[in-house]
């Protein structure tokens, strides 16, 4: 066992970007806080804290979720993937299509995009636009993002 916990703290073990991690955190922390302030993975951004903008999107057990709405205790035993796991090649398509401008929504956008690319069968029932509706962007008209997904999906993920 590890060190005794301070009052209000809990220990949580989960898989983060393919590695097992164990963190001791405030029981009231969100997954987002833990990633950013405890583990130093600041790629994931907080845009609104209410699940609307999707800037904090990470993949949890294979699905995109807003990490601002996940209490850290619910990450126990889960597989979490963040933008830090993303390789340059995977996002070339978005770079070329003008899918990023200021970059604040971008990490969340990338996580949703790559989830779509990995699960292409969702495109049988959904348009890319519908799937991306949970990622608000204030710089683009989303076209660069949509085109980036289309391009990436066409080439199977790499740019």
């Amino acid at each position: 066992m590890t060190m005794p916990l301070e009052p209000g703290q809990i220990e949580v073990a989960f898989t983060l970007n393919g590695r097992e991690v164990v963190v001791v955190v405030d029981a009231a922390a969100r997954l987002l806080d833990t990633l950013r302030y405890q583990l130093g993975l600041t790629g994931t951004k907080e845009g609104c804290g209410e699940g609307e903008c999707g800037a904090c999107t990470v993949c949890m057990n294979g699905n995109p979720v807003n990490s601002c709405l996940v209490p850290i205790f619910q990450a126990r035993g889960c597989k979490v993937e963040t933008v830090e796991s993303v390789e340059n090649e995977a996002v070339f398509a978005l770079l070329g299509s003008g899918g990023t401008q200021c970059g604040a929504c971008t990490p969340g956008v990338v996580m949703t995009v790559l989830w779509i690319v990995k699960n292409r069968d969702v495109l049988e029932t959904h348009s890319v636009r519908e799937l991306m509706a949970g990622n608000l962007c204030r710089c683009t008209d989303y076209d660069g993002i949509i085109n980036g997904v289309d391009r990436a999906a066409a080439t199977g993920g790499a740019g």
């Binding site: 950013r36 993975l41 600041t42 790629g43 994931t44 951004k45 907080e46 963040t82 933008v83 830090e84 993303v86 390789e87 340059n88 996002v91 978005l94 770079l95 070329g96 003008g98 899918g99 990023t100 401008q101 970059g103 604040a104 971008t106 990490p107 990338v110």
Partner: peptide
């Protein structure tokens, strides 16, 4: 030419003040 800081933004390496 591609956006210079684009890849940093797309992979979460770009640092904003809260980072």
């Amino acid at each position: 030419p591609l956006r210079r800081e684009g890849l940093d933004k797309l992979t979460g390496r770009e640092r904003y003040v809260d980072d």
